[in-house]
């Protein structure tokens, strides 16, 4: 009898719980997409990319892989309040292999409180604090990492970013290829935070799902704007030796590859379940998994 009573209570609780979460986040039914970040990459997988090696010679390589994890997404309101989005909702894997024909990968932000925002920041990779913190809070991150972004045999198992390209020069016997896998390894810390100001105020409200046009300039990983402190990276020095200057510069250059452009402020509201269905084939790894 006691059990039955608690089951009934439980059923009421579950019903309330479900109805409450729906009221908070739905447009009518489903999960309201607060905003969409559209990452437009400067290259597609398979494109040729020209890089400089340690002999200061240009080499042409075919881009095979470019992907990175973002975590600790934070939006700042126009009143300077920080809104931190939990990693179990907002962490994402951006994989160029899943881009559309315009080299675009979409990231859907949900559960952002309604309001006006002036900037966004996110971590490239996973901070040591998060990796050593609550395991429950890493549920989504760990599943994002599992396919191809995990060093199972490293204390911090997350690979933050990968870039790989094959040299098109077939004449030399040992053409220099590009391979860089970035993470916290062997005492070398690679986590960087990206801060991006919006050019105009981003309004988040129930009726709309605004999108933010963001470019990802892959060349800047190697040839950043030196006038603002970036340093050139000969691509063939990556993946050799211990955390050398080249690798250090390369990781720092990640701060420079993103640039926010215009915002489409009045895009009609979309619902996460719908876009997941539509983009299931092209964005299997970046979509929310339920």
């Amino acid at each position: 009898m006691k059990t039955l009573k608690s089951y009934i209570l439980g059923a009421i609780a579950a019903a309330l719980l479900i109805s409450c979460t729906k009221n908070n986040e739905s447009i009518e039914e489903g999960t309201h997409v607060s905003a969409v970040i559209k990452f437009y990459h400067s290259y597609a997988i398979g494109d040729e990319i020209t890089l400089t090696d340690s002999n200061n010679e240009s080499q042409t390589l075919t881009l095979n892989k470019f992907k990175f994890i973002i975590s600790d997404v934070m939006l700042r309101t126009t009143d300077n309040e920080q809104v931190h989005l939990p990693n179990n909702i907002a962490a994402n894997l951006i994989d160029l292999a899943n881009a559309d024909e315009t080299n675009k990968v979409r990231v859907y932000l949900t559960e952002v409180p309604f309001g006006s925002y002036k900037s966004i920041s996110f971590g490239l990779g996973v901070s040591q604090e998060v990796a050593n913190g609550s395991t429950e809070d890493q549920t989504r991150l760990m599943e994002l990492a599992e396919a191809d972004m995990q060093w199972t045999w490293n204390p911090n198992s997350y690979i933050f970013s990968k870039i790989e390209a094959t040299n098109t020069n077939t004449e030399t016997t040992t053409p220099k290829n590009l391979i860089a896998h970035v993470g916290n390894k062997g005492g070398f810390s690679s986590y960087v935070t990206i801060d991006l100001e919006f050019l105009e105020t981003l309004i988040i409200k129930q009726e709309i799902s605004p999108s933010i046009h963001t470019t990802v300039d892959i060349d800047k990983l190697f040839t950043p704007d030196e006038s603002i402190g970036g340093a050139k990276v000969p691509f063939d020095l990556l993946g050799h030796g211990e955390a050398n200057d080249a690798f250090n510069n390369f990781v720092t250059n990640y701060k420079e590859i993103f640039e926010i452009g215009h915002i489409h402020p009045n895009e009609p509201a979309i619902n996460l379940e719908d876009v997941e269905e539509n983009h299931h084939t092209e964005e299997t790894t970046t979509g929310h998994s339920h």
């Binding site: 608690s6 089951y7 209570l9 439980g10 609780a13 579950a14 309330l16 409450c20």
Partner: peptide
């Protein structure tokens, strides 16, 4: 939101009873 505490308690009761 104001129901969240009650819901949480009920939820715990529910879960603990089911095990």
């Amino acid at each position: 939101m104001k129901y969240s505490k009650i819901i949480y308690i009920l939820f715990i009761v529910f879960v603990s009873c089911s095990q």
